[in-house]
Design a protein around this nucleic acid. Structure first.
Length: 145
DNA sequence: GCCAACGTTGGC
DNA sequence: GCCAACGTTGGC
């Protein structure tokens, strides 16, 4: 089980919109960055990921589950770009703000802080547990190795 | 709305 | 294969 973080502007695609898609979920399409794509390639079905709202919100609002491994993006004629499918798993009882993450010394190494431009990022196990705790999810869901 | 950071593109 | 130009992202 690995952990990741997806970023999205809620005005174009929010956690609520993913939630509305229900069990079939949604392709995480539109990624045009190799590092982000490579992170999606490294995902396996069942991985749990944070959903972060950029631009407005600036907080981690929920958890999503990977339900299909990376595949060519439907509707793209450029074979370089791949995406996984995800569905909403659970909302954070208490959204975890970027400000709170920056204030937490345990989270100083998070890509969200260090490389804010990366739209799909890895999250370490320790970071996962800490953010879940801050968000009112304890014990962290499926944090078993 | 501004601006810094950074990734991609394309000419050489 | 380098690097300047350019476009995009995202926090403030």
């Amino acid at each position: 089980m690995n952990h990741w973080l997806f970023k999205s502007e809620p005005s174009s695609f929010s956690f609520q919109m993913l939630k509305a898609k229900g069990k079939p979920g949604q392709e995480w399409d539109g990624v045009r960055n190799y590092a982000a794509r490579n992170n999606m390639r490294a995902m396996t079905v069942g991985d749990l990921c944070f959903f972060y709202h950029s631009q407005s919100g600036l907080d981690i609002v929920g958890i999503v589950r990977v339900i299909a491994p990376a595949h060519a993006e439907r509707g793209s004629d450029d074979p370089r770009w791949e995406c996984v499918d995800v569905r909403a798993e659970t909302a954070m009882p208490q959204p975890v703000t970027l400000a709170a993450i920056k204030d937490n010394r345990k989270l100083a190494e998070m890509a969200l802080v260090k490389n804010s431009r990366l739209s799909v990022q890895p999250v370490s196990h320790a970071e996962w547990v800490e953010v879940c705790r801050m968000g009112g999810l304890a014990p962290a869901p499926a944090s078993k190795e």
